[in-house]
Computed example of a mutant assay.
Amino acid sequence: MSTVQEAGIRDWDFPRGVASVALMAGFAREHGVPTARILQGSGLGERQLIDPDAQIDAHTELAVIRNLVRELGDRPNLGLEVGRRYRITTFGIFGFACVSSPTLGEAIAFALRYLELSFTFCIPAARWRPGEFVARIHDERVPADVRRFLVERDVTAMYQMLSDLLGRHVELLRAEFDFASPSNLDLYTEIYGLRPTFEQEHNLFTLDPALLEQPLPQANEHTWAMCLAQCRELVSRRRARTGIAAEVRELLVPRGGLDGYAVPPGIDAVARDLNMSTRTLRRHLDAAGTSYRQLLDEVRRALSEEMLTATPLSVSDVAIRLGYAEASTFIHAFKRWTGTTPSAYRRGAITPPARR
């Protein structure tokens, strides 16, 4: 039997900080390319690269990546060279949350849930099964002109993060890539400690699942709780919905407040309220990078956190008011959203984010 965990996002088109762009600009400078050339056409200025609060969209970083590949693309395995520069500290509060997680497995689960706080363009999915942990790296939606660079960069950055978390090089069981083998594999073997295979069906790497149970050397329950709260708040700000997604969210929020029953309308009812077919609504939501299920989860999560912290309702009552037939189904969903149970959340094991 295997357990699969998908990332909390389906696509690379999410807002991000500038640390990744600053890292690539620094790499380019070291190899004789002025920062102005790397930022050309991105709309970014050099001053913005040192602003820790600056936020850009993914297409801005993509413009910088294309400039980097244009300027230095003749270097073999450029993506590997750049990817090994990404360390846990590059990722700010997201990285600190991973570092302070209790175990490597819990750090990976957290990273997948909050992947939109990273800089990745390739979307990982994890599978736990007897004898093997498999990380499959999806590149289907990555633009073809920079796909190989980004697979090399993002997979290497993920590997570097795992090594940073454990404080040593992680031993891979195997690594596979869907593109042709380079002429020289020395850098691959230097970084990964093995010879990958190429022209495979998927991009993936595997670990001994026993590694996932290992406590992390810098684990700290209090720090982890604070980092989780800050990450949730940051994600909430970045997920401010507009357009069709905002209209659907409004229809999913109950009118009766926290004390009333809040069984949410189904997608067919929402589509009727918006005077469109269900198929058209699905298409519009997909174009907006979301889905009815994802929006319903966002609404249910927000309501459940509020009910658990602002009312004396039992977990079973919260489940009923959110439209769940059984409390166990709600508990499973809540743990998927937050990494903890409703009861533990209420006890304060995970501090709720400050309300604004």
Score class of each variant (00 low, 15 high):
residue 168 R to W: 07
residue 342 P to G: 06
residue 9 I to M: 05
residue 43 G to N: 08
residue 18 V to S: 02
residue 301 R to L: 13
residue 281 L to H: 15
residue 139 D to Q: 03
residue 143 P to H: 01
residue 187 L to W: 12
residue 101 S to H: 01
residue 219 A to V: 12
residue 2 S to Y: 10
residue 204 L to K: 07
residue 125 A to C: 12
residue 289 G to W: 07
residue 187 L to R: 08
residue 42 S to V: 02
residue 178 D to Q: 12
residue 101 S to M: 01
residue 83 G to E: 02
residue 324 Y to K: 13
residue 13 D to K: 14
residue 36 A to K: 12
residue 142 V to K: 06
residue 308 L to P: 02
residue 34 P to W: 00
residue 32 G to P: 06
residue 30 E to G: 15
residue 239 R to M: 08
residue 97 A to W: 10
residue 123 I to V: 15
residue 84 R to F: 03
residue 304 S to A: 14
residue 241 R to D: 01
residue 180 A to I: 08
residue 322 L to V: 13
residue 297 D to M: 07
residue 244 I to Y: 02
residue 64 V to R: 07
residue 83 G to S: 05
residue 90 T to A: 08
residue 4 V to I: 15
residue 217 P to E: 01
residue 160 Q to V: 10
residue 166 L to D: 01
residue 291 S to K: 06
residue 5 Q to R: 11
residue 233 E to P: 09
residue 75 R to D: 03
residue 15 P to R: 11
residue 112 L to T: 00
residue 345 Y to P: 01
residue 331 I to V: 13
residue 153 R to F: 02
residue 251 L to W: 05
residue 126 A to N: 05
residue 177 F to Y: 14
residue 162 L to G: 05
residue 234 L to W: 03
residue 21 V to I: 15
residue 206 T to G: 07
residue 58 A to C: 06
residue 256 G to W: 12
residue 154 D to I: 12
residue 178 D to C: 13
